[in-house]
Design a protein around this nucleic acid. Structure first.
Lengths: 225, 225
DNA sequence: CCGGTTAGTGTAGTAAGTACACCATCGGTT
DNA sequence: AACCGATGGTGTACTTACTACACTAACCGG
């Protein structure tokens, strides 16, 4: 334990970051959760996250906690919102700045750590009871995710660098929870002029191989419109 | 000064809220600013806002600070984002949770207060040099405002309860910064089925009076889609 | 070479959005 | 009373975006 004490003339809340990391597993939208090792809410499932270091950027904190608790890194984070209801944490007043992020399917192997007894993917419709107000946070993240599908390019974040149009369509279908017409989908995606053929093809079974595509400007994977 | 001291085993950042309040004045999008009475950035212009009370909700804090510093109240706030760059405040580490809001034109008379030497509206394109990272915050708020015009009903927040279609069109024109076709605008707005005629008319000069309208569901003035 | 499976393509109809011009109604003036 | 200036209010043709829909192509395995 740190022997030093930090003294302020007015009470200060604690600040944490939490991350809602989505992926698609077996055609199901899933969220990464950790099992809490310590109180409060010990052994309950929660979002990965933790306290902000005093000289650390908010987004760096979110990335660091994600890395520490789950071993996952190299992911684009977007700020989701800040939660600060006075009683949301029983220990002290805590303001949580939340982020959401997407990961390619089956790309990541979460692992346990010092703060997390376990880390695992949960289908969004089969979430366990969650610590703090994390159920509410996930809810907001899911709404935001679906809303952004229409006007952003976030769907590509759920795919590897090169992908087939069928894979891309499948991402949309899972997120929107409805079947899409193949020809219309391809027409619309190609009309947006954000992906190009790689020239390669991919075989995914005993059938015709598919052309693979990649995003034209990789830096644009999250830009609005 | 409070004689008590608040002691924590780890350093805690301070948390503030800041509000970007927009209105339209003389066909110009304007932002409410206060002139800082105290250091840091004394006598510079800044967003209204201040420190979070330890048992106070984030949004309540934003409303309270807005009221205290400008006398303005009864406004719908929406969370904009949280800013926490390590050096954004020279005093100590400060995390600012920001909100944005809209107010009917010429409806509010800002006033000075204990923390604000003065409060005044500034056209968005003629902002003074601003304290902290407030220029960046205003920038984000403006982008968000324009983005929301298309799929939300926020424009109505800039009008009184009853209004004419010309007034409404003028709000859109100022925010989008382009002229709109009168017939198409009316067709599109009415097709959305969110306003109804009041049955009254309003005279605004020596010409034909205009029918006035009101939103069908006042609770829906901020809802997406 | 045949069957199973996914990849890949075009057209016609419908709905949404855009461009565009004139008359109506009021107050004020002559 | 007639006219002027100013804003309110309306319809139609055209263009563009979206929707519905069915067959052939290419590969693997047996």
């Amino acid at each position: 334990m740190n022997p030093q004490r930090y003294i302020y003339p007015y009470p200060h809340p604690a600040v944490t970051t939490d991350v809602v990391l989505f992926t698609i597993q077996m055609d199901t939208l899933s969220v990464l959760l950790i099992e809490r090792k310590n109180p409060p809410f010990q052994s309950m499932w929660a979002l990965p996250g933790g306290f902000l270091d005093i000289s650390e950027d908010l987004e760096s904190c979110a990335k660091r906690e994600l890395q520490e608790e789950t071993g996952i890194e190299g992911i684009y984070l977007e700020q989701l919102g800040t939660f600060g209801a006075p009683q949301r944490d029983p220990r002290e007043r805590v303001i949580s700045v939340t982020y959401f992020a997407l990961s390619p399917s089956d790309h990541l192997c979460p692992r346990a750590s010092s703060d997390a007894a376990e880390a695992a993917w949960f289908p969004i419709n089969e979430l366990p009871e969650l610590a703090f107000d994390h159920a509410q946070i996930i809810n907001l993240a899911r709404q935001r995710l679906i809303a952004k599908l229409g006007y952003s390019t976030i769907a590509f974040q759920m795919l590897p660098e090169t992908f087939t149009l069928s894979q891309l369509q499948s991402v949309y279908e899972v997120l929107l929870n409805e079947a899409l017409d193949k020809r219309n989908f391809r027409k619309a995606i190609l009309a947006r002029n954000i992906i190009r053929e790689t020239g390669e093809t991919a075989r995914h079974g005993n059938h015709r191989p598919a052309k693979t595509y990649q995003v034209l400007n990789p830096r644009q994977v999250e830009i609005i419109k």
